[in-house]
């Protein structure tokens, strides 16, 4: 089919996911399966469906604009892989 390892690697770039060679090859087959899924769905008539119709039983879920205490800084940073001066720390962003 049309999709191959190169397509997988492009997607991996978007998803910021490093893959092994064999994973990239394997996932190409999965992409093909996805294509056939889409083809199967194309055969269905969904013209009666309007995804934006307002038929929903849960809407206007809103919260009052009242401040509640935030989490303590130490708790927030407790799982940080690297921190510096009270901030989360990451290496250079190539600009």
């Amino acid at each position: 089919m049309g999709l191959n390892k190169k397509d997988v690697l492009k997607l991996a770039g978007l998803a910021h996911l490093s893959l092994t060679e064999s994973e990239a090859e394997e996932f190409a087959k999965d992409l093909d399966k996805m294509v056939s899924f889409a083809e199967e769905l194309q055969g269905l008539d969904t013209s009666s469906i309007d995804l934006e119709d307002r038929d929903t039983n849960v809407y206007n879920v809103l919260r009052k604009d009242e401040v509640k205490p935030s989490m303590a800084k130490e708790e927030l940073l407790a799982n940080a892989p690297e921190q510096k001066e009270g901030c989360f720390f990451v290496p250079q962003i190539v600009e």
Partner: peptide
């Protein structure tokens, strides 16, 4: 419901 106040010590207006 964290505050939006400007300034403040880093990472103290979070949840």
């Amino acid at each position: 419901s964290c505050t939006t106040k400007f300034g403040g010590e880093e990472n103290t207006h979070c949840c």
